[in-house]
């Protein structure tokens, strides 16, 4: 992600013109400090391989389905790969953008892994397995404890403050009237996610979601209009 922002790709320009080395640059794999969710390993690999960090993260998430060994590989690699330096020149808005994107990737990955696991279990393709040799219940308990420690140590940082948004119909994220887009912007969540929640809510409430949508369509001002 944001390869232009990376600070982990430590490019060592070799000015030595001796025939032994020649003119070349050497890239070193480092854990990213800017594109980081847990230890910054996926961000570092993404910077090193010039791939999108989301792609690397999804690969690691899918590896969890193979007996949970993805987590073990991740932790061992994090121990051996050194940490990159923090980019102090990065602006608050860029920092906020990366934190927000990473949070979305983290939430999406958790939903995807849980959903995939239980979907495969529903069709009998996969069964509860010993995660990396650890019994499932102990594994889940340890995961909950690790999540608690991660949160406690400040891994989940508060987003830098932004302006107070007003509820209105979105002009940019619009399918019908821009209600879901406007609500998503107001609640600081993804528009696609909001649409799915709205759709499920409409099914669950037997059409009440449509009535609410119509009321909001009439009641809310368009983006840029005064209330």
């Amino acid at each position: 992600m944001n390869n232009e922002l990376n600070n982990t790709e430590k490019t060592i320009s070799d000015n030595n013109t001796s025939p032994e080395f020649g003119n070349h640059s050497q890239r070193v794999l480092l854990r990213s400090q800017s594109d980081k969710i847990i230890t910054g390993l996926c961000g570092g690999i993404a910077d090193y391989t010039k791939l999108d960090s989301t792609f690397i993260r999804i690969l690691f998430v899918l590896l969890i389905l193979l007996g949970g060994w993805g987590i073990v590989i991740y932790l061992i690699a994090s121990l051996f790969v050194p940490s990159g330096k923090e980019d102090l020149t990065m602006e608050k808005s860029e920092q906020r953008k990366i934190i927000k994107e990473n949070r979305q990737v983290l939430s999406g990955s958790i939903l995807l892994i849980v959903g995939l696991f239980f979907t495969l279990e529903l069709y009998g393709i996969i069964e509860f397995f010993y995660f990396a040799g650890i019994p499932p219940v102990i594994f889940w308990s340890l995961s909950v404890i690790i999540a608690g420690v991660y949160l406690f140590k400040g891994g989940w940082n508060e987003l830098p403050k932004t302006e107070f948004s007003v509820l209105n119909k979105s002009a940019t994220h619009k399918r019908i009237a821009g209600i879901c887009g406007g609500m998503a912007k107001y609640m600081h969540i993804d528009t696609g996610f909001m649409r799915i929640v709205w759709l499920i809510g409409t099914f669950l409430t037997f059409g009440t979601g449509i009535i609410i949508y119509l009321i909001l369509w009439l009641a809310l001002p368009a983006e840029g209009e005064k209330q």
Partner: peptide, 20 residues
């Protein structure tokens, strides 16, 4: 519900650039 969760997860991953 697992299929719905997966759909939500994919939506978040696909639309990650929208977050900013």
């Amino acid at each position: 519900w697992p299929v719905i969760l997966s759909m939500m997860g994919i939506t978040l991953l696909v639309n990650k650039n929208e977050a900013s």
